[in-house]
């Protein structure tokens, strides 16, 4: 947080990074840059290398080749904690929230506010509650009771709490791994609004999603991955909605498949159409 927020210095930049697992090339020469207050949507098929890229950015993997810069300075992370200390916070799909623990206890796990000194130092639960309530209401979420177990929150609320936690602890770059994929329309809206809030605070966001209807309204830039390479980064102007949807939903391959299926018997076609529909949602 001490570094100056020059809006021309990318909050996060990777240059030509590659990652190999044995003989498998998971990432090959991927480059991208992200300015503070920008939302970049990371798009790509399953196996395109999205997970590897996220894990490399968040300090789980080390890139085998290429440069990784945060605030214009080269970095090399040995653990997710180190990345976190540099302001790179990742909110995973499975959340890393503990369902049986209260919202407050989850929020501050590992960074509990304290009061008192030496052996009388205690976890200031009262203050923690106040902060949680305040932080969440700032983002437009009204938690009924900060002491309720996280397991009792809805999916959208959980995601929002996880994001609020990252923002509160000084994240400069927020990596969100499919935060809306398991959510209904309303819940997804809550999370998207939250991403907009984070952007307004000058936080750079990398948003991974399979849903073009979630990606398009919020994204400033779109980076498309395919087989471990980038097909490029496009601004919203360069990439009309239809083209993006086309790219995201499997593009030509799916069109060919649809063509092929048109000849089938009605009933079978119905079943298969459902299957395609499901597949589309997956992609």
């Amino acid at each position: 947080m001490t570094m100056n927020h020059n809006s021309n210095t990318p909050a996060l930049e990777v240059r030509e990074i590659s990652k190999y697992f044995g003989s498998v090339i998971a990432l090959s020469g991927v480059s991208m840059r992200l300015l503070p207050g920008e939302v970049m949507c990371l798009l790509g098929d399953n196996g395109a290398g999205k997970s590897t890229l996220i894990k490399t950015l968040s300090g789980v993997h080390k890139p085998d080749e290429g440069e990784y810069l945060v605030d214009g300075r080269p970095v090399s992370f040995d653990s997710p904690r180190e990345a976190l200390d540099h302001g790179i916070a990742t909110v995973y799909q499975d959340l890393a929230m503990i369902p049986l623990m209260s919202v407050t206890r989850n929020f501050f796990l590992g960074s509990e506010p304290t009061a008192g000194r030496s052996i009388f130092k205690r976890f200031n639960v009262q203050r923690a509650r106040e902060i949680v309530r305040e932080e969440l209401s700032k983002m437009g979420i009204d938690i009924r009771d900060p002491d309720q177990p996280v397991g009792t929150l809805s999916g959208g609320e959980r995601q929002s709490v996880a994001i609020a936690r990252a923002v509160y602890f000084g994240a400069k770059v927020l990596i969100l791994d499919e935060p809306t994929s398991a959510l209904g329309v309303k819940q997804a809206g809550v999370v998207l609004r939250y991403i907009a809030q984070a952007r307004a605070r000058g936080i750079a966001v990398i948003f991974i999603t399979h849903n073009p209807h979630h990606a398009y309204p919020i994204g400033d830039k779109f980076t498309i991955l395919k087989r471990g390479r980038t097909l490029g980064t496009f601004t919203k102007r360069e990439l009309p909605r239809e083209k993006m949807i086309h790219l995201m939903s499997g593009g030509d391959e799916l069109e060919r498949l649809e063509h092929e299926l048109r000849g089938f018997h009605d009933q079978q076609a119905d079943i298969l159409a459902d299957a395609i529909h499901e597949e589309e949602e997956l992609y």
Binding site: P80, R81, L84, A96, M97, I98, P99, L100, M101, R105, F108, L109, G110, S111, E112, T114, K121, R122, F123
Partner: peptide, 21 residues
């Protein structure tokens, strides 16, 4: 206390606890 919160966290999800330090 903080260690108390950690005990709950470790038992709830060890990896999640480790990731937050």
């Amino acid at each position: 206390t903080r260690p108390g919160n950690w005990i709950f966290g470790i038992g709830g999800d060890e990896d999640a606890a480790r990731n937050v330090g």
